[in-house]
Amino acid sequence: MVRTSGLRMSYGDQEVLSGVDLEVHPGEVVCLLGPNGAGKTTTIEILEGFRLPSAGEVRVLGEDPATAGDAWRARVGVVLQSWRDHARWTPRRLLTQLGGYFEPFSTPERPRPYEVDHLLATVGLAEHADRKIGTLSGGQRRRLDVAVGIIGRPELLFLDEPTAGFDPQARRDFHELVHRLSDLEGTSILLTTHDLAEAEKLADRILILAHGRIVASGSADELTRQVAGTAEVRWACGPDRFVHPTDDVVGFVRRLFEEHGDRLTDLEVRRASLEDTYLAMVQRAESGRPAGPVLEEVTR
């Protein structure tokens, strides 16, 4: 669905992307994770065809987004961050108007656009369908943005920081919506976030972007296993408490029992969280050291 190699982008002499290689497979939900200024938005805007890369090869649905035509546009969904546009319109009116553009691209297998009432119900805006958009809350407005992004029943959907500013309920609803889209419609999704819990929950695969390149790729579990010191063991012998990081939890705990036996009064094993992994990887990228085995994994 998406493939880039050696993607570079610089503004003046400042390099934002220095060789990004990434892939999104059909039906996959991929999360682009990274600190602010890592180039997430730039990457996604290049894939959307809104920005020209300085160098590198980009293929989205088999075409170069920079030159792809309107038929390509009809297959791609983009969720944009709006703030005050169409304030006088109602969600129903706006979706009907914007959805109209997809009608010429409807096929029997993929009827376009979605039926507006169905879509409004899907994103939970049914009861606000006829209110002025200017009076919607921030969360409702973002749900409308999502609805606009998927109205054309896209095969591939781009979301840039979709849940920024959501309350927990809105966030959970949104996550369900993403699951539904990918499960029922087989939509491939590429989203950016800096919310780790979100990435862990949504993504089939996480890409960590730091300093203009992808420094890691894999499921949350795989990423965690890539970082040394994946677990922390805490134990107590009477009043004395100890902490020790280890890769080999089972071996370490066995030795603890052999050594202390019954004197062991407390034992706790903590797996490294995605957060630990993420911070370790970003730090490694920042220190400028080529990120060892992790980088090799990705660049293949």
Partner: peptide, 12 residues
């Protein structure tokens, strides 16, 4: 405000 960008994201 993004009105134009919305249209840029649509076919035609």
């Amino acid at each position: 405000d993004g009105t134009l960008l919305r249209h840029k994201a649509l076919p035609h």
